[in-house]
Computed example of a mutant assay.
Amino acid sequence: MTRRIAVLMGGLSAEREVSLVTGRAVLEALHARGHDAFGIDVGADLCERLRKEAPTICFNALHGRWGEDGTVQGMLEILRIPYTHSGVLASALGMHKPTARRLFVEAGLPVADGMVVRRDKLTSGDPMPRPYVVKPINEGSSVGVRLVFQGDNFDPAADLAGLGAEVLIERYIPGREVHVAVMGERALGAVEIRPKGRFYDYEAKYTEGRADHLMPAPLPAEDYQEALRLALAAHRALGCRGVSRTDLRYDDTGTRARFYVLEVNTQPGMTPLSLVPEIAAYHGISFGELVEWMLEDAGCDR
């Protein structure tokens, strides 16, 4: 039977524009390979659209809240439509940073010292010695992330407006930014990102020329393999399936280099600047082949 593929994109999150780029790239790849595929710009009428269009499978190209946090996944489960990437529970766990941290610790993975604090309490002073990182509890693509260094004029009321009642505070880890793609039960490879600004923020991720990509990551051989091991272990700790991307910090500023797991992205981007397609291409997997594999993986156990 010919599959009718719905590509879910856009959505209601802060990452809407990035999701549209991902979705269009996926649609183009599917059409080029002869698939019956169409896009849905996701809104509050998604359930009705899916019932009307009756796809046999969904490629979930949504990013951020309501698309990456188990919400859409739950709807698709109820409608019994197979979909790409992780299921309801793994998606929810991966999106909620404090819960993901706890699972990483339980799995024996290294994480930065951190705590959840009420945003209004930050006006009373620093919750830990500077430098530290402030993160929203449940956003992706570095949306809302703030780095607080010595001498910074940090105003929590203004700088963190709109981040919710609670935020995650983590000790800033010096060193290098390493990202690993996992495809099924295989850690594909690692890329190092060298942003040209203070850190690999939203603009650096999605603006040409704002960061250098070093593929493969120029690490000692044993450390490269350790990055792959940590990423696969983090993928498993959350119960992910399909493709994921694990973000690591590699602190090589002291006498002994060490990795820290930052987070797992259960629905990594598929834009021209995205890291998973770049890593896959280095290992001989074209964008179209990657997209097709994700669809096959989505339908194989359902």
Rank of each mutant, 00 (worst) to 15 (best):
D252G: 09
A221P: 00
A221H: 09
Q225S: 11
A234C: 07
E222W: 08
R249N: 05
N265D: 08
T266P: 12
S244D: 02
R258I: 00
L214C: 08
F259C: 14
P272S: 05
R245A: 14
A233M: 02
T271G: 04
M215I: 15
L214E: 01
L219V: 02
L248R: 01
T271R: 06
P218N: 09
C240V: 09
L262N: 07
D252V: 06
V261P: 01
R258F: 02
A227C: 03
T253G: 02
T253I: 03
Q225R: 15
L232F: 02
T246N: 15
S244Q: 03
P220V: 13
A234Y: 01
H235E: 14
V243E: 10
G254D: 01
M270T: 13
A231G: 06
R236D: 10
P268C: 02
G254E: 02
P218D: 13
R229Y: 05
D247K: 07
L228M: 10
R256Q: 09
G254L: 00
H235M: 15
T266L: 13
R245V: 14
P272N: 05
T246R: 07
L228S: 06
M270R: 00
T255D: 13
L230V: 04
G269N: 06
Y224G: 04
M215Y: 11
T246H: 12
A217E: 02
G242C: 10
R236Y: 09
R245F: 15
D251Q: 06
L232R: 03
A217Q: 06
V261L: 12
G254V: 03
T253C: 08
L228V: 12
R256T: 07
V243Q: 10
Q267I: 15
D251W: 00
L228G: 00
